[in-house]
Design a protein around this nucleic acid. Sequence first.
DNA 1: CTAAGTGCAAATGTTTTGCAGAATC
DNA 2: GATTCTGCAAAACATTTGCACTTAG
Lengths: 174, 174
Amino acid sequence: MNVTRNHAETPRLPPVQVKISPTEKFREFLEAKGQRLTHERRIVVEEVYSSHEHFDSEQLINRLANRKDSNRVSRSTVYRTLSLLEEAGMLRKVARQNDRDVYEHDYGYPRHDHMICEKCGDLIEFPNDQIAELLERITREYGFRRTGHRLEVYGICRSCSRPPKSRIRKLDMI
Amino acid sequence: MNVTRNHAETPRLPPVQVKISPTEKFREFLEAKGQRLTHERRIVVEEVYSSHEHFDSEQLINRLANRKDSNRVSRSTVYRTLSLLEEAGMLRKVARQNDRDVYEHDYGYPRHDHMICEKCGDLIEFPNDQIAELLERITREYGFRRTGHRLEVYGICRSCSRPPKSRIRKLDMI
DNA sequence: CTAAGTGCAAATGTTTTGCAGAATC
DNA sequence: GATTCTGCAAAACATTTGCACTTAG
């Protein structure tokens, strides 16, 4: 199961234009709560936003704990900062794999949902405007004031359902 | 947060006609795997299917551990049986609340998804044929062979977003 | 009879927390 | 200088597992 790998067939969604950097946005959030943008928090945010890959707490902790000198951040602080980022609306949980929540950016990136391949574990993103629209219609009937959603589609991805031929090629490359 | 409460506004979906009882279906599944329908497993299935409420492992364990004499089932066995029921396609996880998976029947009941009220924690069911159809169309474009999905819609339910009137009454009662 | 299952207690793995010292504003 | 944070070690969780005993088929 690989959380971060990306499919050749999966085009990257185009980035969304944002006014301020993630770090700045986080600082604003913290300030409003009377909390501080510490050295450690800044490092976590920068690491989290250094790429758009999905990640779980363990992966992030490892990346941050193995750093040199003043750039390492402890396990507890990573957990604490992840909660803050979620509260700030900058991160969201999109799935659960291996008993861990999988996070992704919820800032500077278009809204989308995920297909999850049951064979290779890959998360494949797809834009969700049509779904959001449909949900808006449905929930209105129930008097439900919708604020968001989470959708995971299960199945088998394109490359995992290919004929054996490509599987052989993959083996050759090892 | 209440997992099991049901809204007055939420009509129960009509049951689906099934050929055999949950217990029988489970027995067939087990037999095919060369496993046994033990007394304990039978008790768990009967308890699980005694009502259509959503539940989590802790709630089920409590109900089963507090029984008299030969009808009690241990914590481990409940967990083990829940996994089997999921594998048998009779139960599915529909949400996660308080660090626990929330289960519901996936047998003898129409396919649906859930709205989750962020105020009272209620799970409200709604039929999902339109969504399934839309997903079928979308995933086909990606060459993704869809086998299922999980959708949680977040927001505020009808009764939690009612005008202050009821809130005042509530305060008066304190 | 014998393979499979149960209950218990101990282990596991993730996440949270209390606290003393450090850093921020 | 007071308040907020950090890192550590310990605690708190839900869930899984090893094992001796029991049971279904």
